[in-house]
């Protein structure tokens, strides 16, 4: 399997987990929101961790590009994490409009982020890195 296939699949899973949260909130089904949100948050943060701890360092080491795309990706992860924290707070306060507003911004941020990874960064990784080892290490996280 390629890094691209493996991590793109995770992107889609996170999207679906998010869609579930949004749907529950839309329906005012607050009792089940937190649980769904936790699943979404956990999956997203784990995905970020796989990239930040394993994929990006390997990319930087092999290509020697340190201040390039990986740096930008890390920055966007930070922005995304901040939005996730604020979304969680909005859920705890049962503030529907704030959540939806944060969630919408989060979604666009993460989609353009994923686009850049899927179209540019992952294919580069597949080209230059020994991917079987990397996928194995990511699986172990």
């Amino acid at each position: 399997m390629s890094v691209k296939t493996y991590l793109t699949e995770e992107h889609r899973q996170c999207d679906e987990l998010y869609a579930k949260v949004e749907k529950l909130i839309q329906e005012d089904n607050w009792d089940n929101v937190l649980e769904a949100f936790d699943a979404f948050k956990k999956a997203t943060l784990l995905h970020f961790k796989k990239e930040e701890d394993i994929l990006f360092p390997a990319f930087e080491e092999t290509t020697g590009i340190v201040m390039g795309p990986t740096q930008v990706m890390r920055m966007e992860h930070t922005q995304a994490k901040e939005l996730i924290d604020r979304m969680e707070k909005a859920i705890k306060e049962r503030n529907k409009n704030t959540f939806l507003s944060l969630g919408d911004t989060f979604m666009v941020l993460i989609q353009q982020h994923n686009m850049k990874e899927e179209q540019i960064l992952y294919p580069m990784c597949d080209q230059h890195l020994i991917i079987s080892d990397i996928i194995e290490s990511m699986e172990r996280l």
């Binding site: 290509t63 590009i65 390039g68 795309p69 740096q71 930008v72 990706m73 920055m75 850049k116 540019i120 960064l121 580069m124």
Partner: peptide, 8 residues
């Protein structure tokens, strides 16, 4: 691979 930066 030069010039590839996603931040621009």
């Amino acid at each position: 691979m030069t010039g590839l930066s996603l931040q621009q």
